[in-house]
Amino acid sequence: MFSIRTEGLRKQFGAVKALDGVSFDLSAGLLHGLIGSDGAGKTTTLRLLAGLLRPSAGEVLYYRDGKDSSFAEMRPSLAYMPQQASLYPDLSVGEHLEFFRELYRLDAATFTRRSGELLEITRLDKFRERRAGKLSGGMYKKLGLMCALLQSPSVLLLDEPTNGVDPISRREFWELLYALAAKKILIIVSTAYMDEAERCSRVHLLDRGRLLSSGEPREVLKAAGAASFEEIFIKGGGR
């Protein structure tokens, strides 16, 4: 099982400070939520964790079963789902799965089993032939998640997977995440929806590139003396 820790993570794009010294623990087997409004630094954090960006300062530390590890060691077990549309509109659900199967070099038996399971739990099996460009917002996100999950990752990074998705699909999506979390996968999901914070086992509240607080949702609320996560952000916003 992998866990990740960041220490004083900073990322600067020209004059813009996207992350300004963020340190938190992403302990193994839990469902972590990166909570924050637009521009808080959620996407930058996830891209840094996925090795798609290099920190301007600070570092990301990787551990495997409590021992020091590296990004290179974790990489084969890492799955990442970007926030923006990243699938091919002219390829069907089935063709996407086939494509990612070949990128991950899964054998036929594993692929049949995995894709069967995924199509069933996402209830996309009836839409195998449908092109990604013709899927609804929720189905599109589920297809993205399926492509990420095909290789049975042990670390899953999801960037605002429920953004722009209708409430019913959002609930379904979270049920999927719970099922995955039960398998002791390290899941890090970012969201701007405050109500989703309570669904996570750990939350990390980001505001304009800084970490406001980190911990179990209830403890975080208690420590801040706030009734809701919105309240913490409103207080934090006055800083």
């Binding site: 996925a50 890492l78 970007p82 923006q84 990243s86 091919y88």
Partner: peptide, 11 residues
Amino acid sequence: NGSMELLLSTP
């Protein structure tokens, strides 16, 4: 179209 971000996170 953003697919490169996904591709780069694969092997």
